[in-house]
Every structure is written in structure tokens, then in C-alpha cells.
Simulated assay, not measured.
Amino acid sequence: MQTSPAHAAHHNDREIETLEEFDAVVSSRGTLAGFRVQCVDLTDRTKELLASDATGAVFLGCPMRENAAAKVRADGALVFPPLPGLPFDPYRGHLYRPDELFAALDKGYEETPDALAYAWFQQTKTDGDIYASMLRSVHDDAISDALDELLRGTRVVGVMGGHALGRGTDAYGGAARLGRALARAGFTVATGGGPGAMEAANLGAYAAPYDDTMLDEACELLAKSPSFVPSVTDWARAAFEVRARWPKGNTSVGIPTWFYGHQPPNAFASHIAKYFANATREDGLLARSNAGVVFLPGAAGTVQEIFDNATPNYYESRGEPTPMVLVNRAHWTERLPTWPLLQALARDRSMESRIALVDRIEEAPEALIRLAHVNES
């Protein structure tokens, strides 16, 4: 059964993000004064716009008739018009869905909105155009707002790990079982939203409502396209085939970035918060993982994420430290000896009781819950 956080509909009560909300506000209040109307098609609401006071209102990317736009401007409203030439909407009021980013996949990944947005990003980044830079910033801020609305009141566990982890491997299956166990324990799983370990964790969360055999079967189907290299198209199609066979997956969140454009988003996160600015994305992912983070084996990006998370825990800049669980002792003590440094940082600080190293991925959920209880005591 498709579930979503119960609070998903709740947001700033001055924001209007759907036509239904617009109609409700006009009907109940009779005024739009002070409201922020975000990415709502108001072409067929001219009568309501002409009849309502729009003093201090802001319209972000809302199509409307010219007489309605002139009227609300005369009231003192700010009107930011839609920008139809872009491959994305900078004013969007909601997170992306996989079907949206991968629309037109049947023509090849290069024709999808995801790929076109990356191409636009590459071009405008090279040009150094301040207008394009502003649009990217507006978009990313809108994404952050939508992400906060979705996650408000939920217990979020971040799962970090390398993008190179291949479908069909034991490690991929383990990461998927981790995501499933966390979702079944009542956590909202959040990942970096890309391939590899990130996809596996989102897949596991997606599989949570089904019996255990579903995940095994899904992994077998996906293994036929083990990597997004050389063909993102084939890799993504395999994921959508799994989704079509088991359409009622559980909610999870992917938080990828166009900064790493060679890494496509995965199709198993029900909500995708895709950013242009990687720094905003990295910090936002870790800051929202309020119930802790599990770090699977990875390389430079995962090491960076460990210490990006350790720093606010060390200084308690976000309040009480949150749990950190590192998986695979040999990886984090020998191949990339991150654990000894993390231990040294944590010594004699409150975060010391909130870090753990486990050998096997199956141990991670129990370790996370144990550390969370320490956090609460």
C-alpha cells in the first residue's frame, strides 16, 4: 500500500500550492492578501482573481489571464511569471516523482526532463550567467521548502553509500534489506537518491509492504541491468518494470543533485528532492536525518558525508547528537580507516555514545535503535 508521511499536506498556512487550496482560501476567506501562491495554474480563475484583494500577495510562476495579472499587480501583488523555456520549474511547490524526472524515457534517457535539466545546468554553469544562477537558487530553495513540508514530524534515517554498488551483488541485496527493515520499523528512509547503495536502500523501503519474496524477485529482475553504465535508459527501464509489477510501494526520499550529472536519480524513491547545488543537498540530507544515519561502504563521497555529519554532532550545533552507524569493520578500519578518527573525535563528548561500528548490514537497524534509545535517555 502506498503510504506517505501523515503531515505531508501541512505547510505554511500562507502558502497555496494547489488549485484546491486556492479555491478553499477564496471560498473561506474571500481574500488573497498576504498569500504566496506557488506554481498554480490560475488561467481559469480570472473571476476569483478579479474579485479578491491581493494586497501583499506573491504569485510564483502562476499562469493567469493578462487582465487578472494587471488587477493583482494594481493591488500591490508581486507576480513572477512562468518561465516556459526552462527544462524545470524554479517555482515548483512539490518534490519530484520518478515518473516526472524520467518522462519520455521511451525515447532514451537523453530526452528526459532529468537529462535536459542537467544539460541546461552544464551550459549555464559554463556561461556564468547571473540570471541562470538566480533561477537555480530559487529552484533549490523551493525544493528545500517542499522537502521540509514532506518530512515534518517524521523520524528520518539517512542511508549513505557508494553509487558504484552493482545490482545483483550481495552488498546490493544487503542494502535493500536494510532499507526494508528501517521502513518496517517506522522510519522514513532518505538517501542521496542516486544509483548503487542509494537505490538499494530506496528499493528496500519501497518493498516494505510486500512479503519478503518480493524483494528477492525484484533484485533478480534488476540484476539484468546491473549498472547505469553504459546505458542509463536500460538501467532505468528495469526499475520501472519492477515498479509496474509491484505498484504499491512504500514512501521514501531521494536527495540527488545535478552537480553529479553522470549519476541519474533512482526510481524507487517515491519523492525526489533534486538540487543543482551539491553543498545545499549534502547538508540538507544530513540535517534532515533526525533519527540517525547508516553509512555503508563507500569512497570519497561517503567519507565526506561521515564527517559532514560528525561536525554538528561534535559541536552539538543541531542539538543532541544523532546516531551514526558505520557498516563493515574491515572497510572503515583498514581500507579507509575512518572509524579510528571518528572515535578519536567523539572521545569524552556526548556523541561518543551515539556512534557504532558493525560488521554486518543486518546489525545496523538494531544498532541504530539502540543508539537512539541512548539519545533519549
Rank of each mutant, 00 (worst) to 15 (best):
A372I: 03
G166F: 05
R155Q: 09
G76L: 14
G298Q: 05
L215E: 04
L147C: 08
L95M: 08
Y91I: 04
L371A: 15
T154W: 01
V138Y: 02
D348Y: 05
T31A: 06
P98T: 03
G162I: 09
L86G: 01
A6V: 13
P230I: 14
T169L: 02
E110R: 14
E220C: 12
S4P: 09
L182K: 00
A115V: 08
W332N: 03
Y96C: 06
C219Q: 03
H373A: 15
L345Y: 00
A8M: 10
R243T: 12
E15T: 14
L147W: 03
R73L: 02
R136S: 05
T311W: 15
R97I: 14
F88N: 12
E17H: 05
E21S: 07
I361V: 13
E20F: 08
P226K: 06
S353C: 11
R177M: 09
G85F: 08
R347I: 07
V327W: 08
K274V: 08
Q122K: 08
R347Q: 07
K107Q: 04
C219F: 00
P265N: 10
L203W: 07
H163Y: 10
A9F: 10
D234H: 11
E241L: 11
D234T: 14
P82I: 02
S52I: 06
L221Q: 11
A57S: 15
G158Q: 04
R349Y: 06
A8C: 11
D129R: 09
A142N: 12
N266A: 10
W258N: 07
G162V: 08
V79A: 13
R349F: 07
W332D: 05
P90A: 00
A344P: 00
S350C: 13
D141L: 12
F80C: 14
F80A: 13
L165N: 09
L345G: 00
F102R: 06
Y275R: 13
A200R: 05
G34P: 03
G158L: 05
P209A: 13
E149H: 08
H163I: 10
Y96A: 12
R335T: 10
E21T: 04
R281T: 10
L342P: 02
D212T: 08
E17Y: 04
R36Q: 10
T31F: 00
G34T: 14
A103K: 05
A70I: 12
S377C: 13
E21W: 07
E199G: 03
R288G: 01
T188A: 11
L345Q: 00
P247Q: 14
G298A: 06
Y96N: 09
R318T: 14
Q123F: 08
E100Q: 10
L101F: 01
A68W: 03
G179S: 08
S231P: 08
E320P: 10
G301R: 14
L83G: 05
A239L: 04
W235T: 07
R370D: 15
L105T: 00
E376V: 04
G193R: 02
L165R: 11
D106F: 02
G179H: 07
D41N: 13
P5Y: 10
E320G: 09
D53Y: 00
A142Q: 10
P321E: 15
